[in-house]
């Protein structure tokens, strides 16, 4: 492979609905990535499959230069640990598409929000999920995303407590340096899916609205202070495209993934434990 040629992306077994939105994303980066067959290219793993962690191991062992896991569902801890070890020992970047915590507009301003975290009283996040995106017994993906978002700003997720959990949603709380954290999700077929997050302190308040995966709708992130509201740059890019570019850049050695696989696995474990899915 040379720097000037696109990296090859090979899809493993995957639901048609899922592959479609990734093909749309790939079509928007033809200079970087192209679908094809190559064991040393990037392997796409469908996280909805119960065997997804084992498939990551197989891809790494077969010589893949990178792996993208879409919507990882619940999987045995031992399998996840094995996948993390395999990726680490071969130095293969494994990316996971997360709609909120991987969002570029969020990441660009996360440091600023982090410096104000100590002033916050409320962190209130809710993800609204399309019924078609619910797989497995638990809604792990949204919670992993919310944990990643929280830790990016607060440095920790605190001690997570399950307040409510069902097949259709959850409410998880914690306390991070005096800030009341609530992370919840609900399944709805109403459309307008995505994530909402309010960060509220007396001097500053943020309102964040992350669109659903798939469409290239921008996240709307507004910071409110006594001078009024200021909105972060609107980036018309889908979560899938963002993730593919980040993975491409990590494989090429241009930059690191915003969320490395070992850290993702840790959040995945935390989410599994609190939702009673492990």
């Amino acid at each position: 492979m040379t720097a000037s040629q696109p990296l090859t992306v090979e899809f493993g077994p995957v639901a048609a609905r899922t592959v479609l939105r990734h093909r749309v994303a790939l079509a928007s980066v033809p200079q970087l990535l192209q679908e094809g067959r190559a064991t040393d290219g990037i392997r796409f793993v469908d996280g909805e499959r119960a065997t997804w962690a084992a498939e990551v191991v197989s891809a790494v062992e077969a010589g893949a230069c990178g792996v993208l896991v879409s919507q990882p569902s619940c999987c045995p801890t031992a399998d996840l640990d094995k996948a993390v070890r395999a990726a680490a020992s071969s130095d293969v970047p494994v990316a996971v598409a997360l709609r909120a915590s991987g969002n570029r507009a969020f990441l660009a301003g996360a440091q600023r929000t982090a410096t104000h975290f100590g002033e916050l009283a409320i962190f209130d996040a809710v993800h609204v999920i399309a019924p078609a995106d619910v797989h497995g017994a638990a809604l792990l993906g949204p919670l992993v995303d919310q944990i990643a978002l929280l830790v990016r700003m607060a440095g920790t997720a605190g001690d997570l407590e399950r307040v409510h959990s069902s097949a259709d949603g959850y409410v998880v709380t914690s306390d991070v340096r005096g800030c009341a954290v609530s992370m919840s999700a609900t399944v709805s077929g109403a459309g307008d899916h995505g994530g909402r997050v309010d960060l509220v302190g007396i001097p500053t308040r943020w309102s964040m609205h992350f669109p659903d995966q798939g469409p290239a709708r921008p996240a709307e992130i507004v910071e409110y202070t006594r001078d009024g509201g200021s909105q972060r740059e609107l980036i018309f890019e889908s979560a899938e495209r963002t993730t593919w570019i980040a993975l491409h850049d990590a494989v090429r050695g241009f930059s690191h993934l915003p969320l490395d696989f070992a850290t993702f696995a840790e959040y995945h474990r935390m989410a599994s434990v609190v939702l009673g899915a492990s």
Binding site: A121, I122, V128, P131, D168, T186, V187, S188, G189, A190, G191, D192, V200, G201, I202, P203, T204, R205, S207, Y224, T225, R226, G228, G229
Partner: peptide, 20 residues
């Protein structure tokens, strides 16, 4: 939360399996 030093925001949202 109040009293904040920012613009007010007062929302009520509800979702069921087919409406928001």
């Amino acid at each position: 939360l109040m009293p904040g030093r920012w613009d007010p925001s007062w929302t009520l949202e509800a979702w069921d399996d087919r409406q928001h």
